[in-house]
Computed example of a mutant assay.
Amino acid sequence: MTGSAEVAVVGGGIVGLSTAYALSQQGVAVHLYEAGLPGHGQSAGESRIFRHAHDDPRLVAFARESRGVWAEWAERFGVELVSSDGVVAIGDSALARLRVLDRVGGVAAHAIDSAELADRMPLLAGYSGPAVFDETGGAIRTRAAIKALTDQLGDAVVTGEVISIDPHSSTAVEVRSVTGCAEYSKVVVCAGRETARLARSVGLSLPIRLAAHVRLTFAVKAAAPTRVACLQDGSGDFGEVGVYAAPLPGNSRYAVGLSETVGVRDDGTFIDPAAVRSLDQRARKYVARALPGLDPEPREFVHCWVTDLPWSEDGLAVWESGPTLFVAGHNLFKQAPSLGRALARAATGDGLAPELTP
């Protein structure tokens, strides 16, 4: 660990990195604790979807703000962070979310016909139902984002699992890791599945349901398409409701996953181990039916933890306990830039934004 710091951030996924970077941009001395390599826990993989569409208008507004920060970072770091090919969503749920987007405003999204859908998403089998295109959505270049933020933080990244958080007073919190012990005026915990454990150490019981997720990567059969949008399929026309897919850099591979997750006990064991294999098999069958442009035999797998909140599949909340903030939620990668700035403001005395309270 290099020098002293005012704020500690626990967890080196995209939310922790965004928060630590926002603090550093404010001129705050920060340490970021990560047990392993940054971005290799719940933030693992090469691609995620940036989408504006949500059922909750507050999350739409938050995503709209985050998209602006993604663009700002791309220019500052000199690297593409969100692809320019947009997101297509199919099914009645897409039209319902389009109505929310229209109500919030400021997002370029519109209904499209089957011809435009085929042009935007050439890997998809024939489909003539409801479809929506989010123009400034796209595939988040996750590894580029993780690397850029990690590089910016430099020696502020501390390798070591945090084993305890102990508030000594309203202005001092002791953080013990496997490699040391230090005191901070504020601590922000965004440690994925470990967040609930660390919250219990200060008397908070967070309503997190721990689950596991499976995401498979498939190769494009022919030449990589020049452009290909991300996909959200809520139609059920191809045998599944709740599928998402995103191209990897170069468009020669496509990551596909079901929104469904597998329940996990508090100790990390699966409630039904066979369910993981079932999600894998269902994703393969979906690809064979819906995405004939892909080789149905997966090339890569990503298995990661999910921290669900009970009120929404896109649930997000921040709990405060004295000088410590605890962040939990699901599908947070797209929201990380704005969430990091909001957490940095809260950690430096500006208060927590109302939309982030549980």
Rank of each mutant, 00 (worst) to 15 (best):
R97M: 15
E75N: 13
I90T: 12
V100H: 11
A94Y: 02
D92W: 09
D85P: 02
A74Q: 14
E72Y: 03
G86A: 03
S93W: 05
W70C: 05
V82G: 09
V100A: 02
G86W: 05
E80Q: 11
R76Y: 08
A96V: 09
A74D: 05
V104I: 08
I90D: 04
L81M: 01
S93K: 15
L101W: 10
A74S: 15
E80D: 08
R99S: 15
L98W: 05
W73S: 06
G78R: 03
L101I: 02
R97W: 12
V79R: 08
D102E: 15
A71S: 15
S84V: 07
W70Y: 11
G68M: 14
W70H: 03
G78T: 01
S93D: 15
A96S: 14
V104K: 13
S84A: 15
V87K: 08
F77V: 04
V104N: 12
V87H: 10
E75R: 14
R76W: 12
E65L: 07
V69W: 13
W73E: 05
S93T: 14
E80R: 07
E65G: 02
G86F: 06
L98M: 09
S83E: 03
R97D: 11
V100L: 06
A71D: 14
L81A: 00
V69N: 04
E80M: 05
V79C: 07
V100R: 07
D85R: 05
R97P: 08
E65I: 05
W70L: 10
D85L: 00
V104T: 11
G91D: 01
R97H: 12
A94T: 09
G68A: 12
V100K: 05
A74V: 02
G68W: 12
L81Q: 06
A89P: 00
A74W: 10
L98I: 06
A94C: 02
L95C: 04
G68R: 15
V87A: 13
V104L: 09
A94L: 06
G68Q: 14
R97G: 15
D92G: 06
R103L: 11
D92F: 00
D85S: 10
D85Q: 05
F77E: 11
E75H: 08
S93E: 15
L81G: 00
G78Q: 03
A96F: 11
V69P: 00
E65N: 02
E80V: 05
V88Q: 04
A71Y: 04
W73F: 00
W70D: 09
D102S: 11
E80N: 03
R76E: 13
E80G: 13
R103E: 14
V104C: 07
A94K: 07
S66H: 07
R103P: 00
V100C: 10
D92H: 11
S84E: 14
A89T: 01
V79W: 00
W70Q: 10
L95T: 08
D85W: 06
S93R: 15
S83N: 03
V88H: 01
D102A: 13
R99W: 09
D85N: 04
D85V: 04
L98R: 14
R67E: 04
A94R: 10
E75P: 06
S66I: 14
I90M: 08
V82A: 04
E80L: 06
W73T: 01
